[in-house]
């Protein structure tokens, strides 16, 4: 029932839009004729776009200059630049929506200066965090695409080849058990415990660091904790576990 209603509404909307479009098109072309002579430069600029788009652009130009700025001639160049921007954003929309967006921008530019696209009113810190998440994800993907990386988990025994830039870029190899992982996007780290001369040594490595040249998983132990800090108390933990 509901979908039926929706379909009916859609059909009605489309019919209405077609009607509107048909009405508006001669008006737009009239505007372009009227204004084409006064701003030849902008007409020239937009001539490479489709005919329809150029009409829209010109009529938009007309709308903004007529209602907005006291000295239209002074800032003509800047205006055409700005409006071009908005028009290009309109043009990127799929073809089906073209008629609606065009008609709204027509109405709006004549009545007031509200931009045609919908303004989202979200809290800025949320938008900012969202941006950070996207960038973080992208950079992780980039690193993963660039080099082969095995999945490592606590309990795995791994062998690393690490380049140390501070020490003349020497590559050292070290072997140890992963006792902790910290999953934080690009800043993910893992902690490795190994025995050097009978002394337990823990080291923390960023997972996506370009200085880690190779990670090789040697052994997989089944563990029931995510952090294996209890291994610190055990001597010879690597062998016995």
């Amino acid at each position: 029932m509901q979908s039926m209603c929706g379909k009916l509404r859609l059909v009605a909307k489309q019919a209405f839009n077609n009607l509107k479009n048909a009405e508006l098109k001669p008006i737009a072309s009239f505007d372009s004729k009227l204004f084409g002579c006064s701003i030849p430069s902008s007409a020239f600029n937009s001539s490479h776009r489709s005919n329809f788009a150029s009409e829209l652009l010109l009529s938009k130009n007309f709308g903004t200059t007529s209602c907005g700025i006291p000295s239209a001639l002074r800032s003509c160049g800047g205006l055409s630049l700005a409006t071009n921007h908005s028009v290009s954003s309109v043009l990127t929309l799929p073809n089906r929506n073209m008629s609606t967006s065009e008609s709204t921008s027509q109405d709006v530019s004549v009545s007031s200066d509200v931009p045609p696209q919908r303004i989202k009113f979200k809290r800025l810190d949320k938008t900012a965090r969202h941006i950070m998440q996207i960038i973080d994800k992208e950079s992780v993907e980039e690193v993963k695409a660039a080099r082969e990386m095995p999945v490592i988990k606590p309990g795995y025994t791994v062998q690393l080849r690490v380049e140390v830039p501070e020490n003349k870029r020497r590559v050292t190899t070290l072997k140890g058990i992963v006792i902790a992982m910290r999953n934080a996007g690009l800043n993910s780290t893992f902690r490795i415990r190994r025995l050097v001369a009978g002394v337990g040594i823990e080291s923390l490595f960023p997972l996506y660091s370009p200085n880690i040249k190779e990670i090789k998983v040697l052994d997989k132990k089944k563990v029931r904790r995510s952090k294996l800090y209890y291994l610190r108390g055990k001597m010879n933990a690597l062998k016995k576990q």
């Binding site: 938008t127 900012a128 965090r129 941006i131 960038i135 830039p165 690009l186 800043n187 370009p210 200085n211």
Partner: peptide, 23 residues
């Protein structure tokens, strides 16, 4: 600009740089 937050990344020499992203 809007301050989006901080992160850190590695440059081509493998040095880590603290980064603030501005929008």
């Amino acid at each position: 600009a809007v301050k989006c937050g901080m992160t850190a990344l590695w440059d081509k020499w493998g040095a880590r740089i603290p980064i603030t992203i501005l929008w």
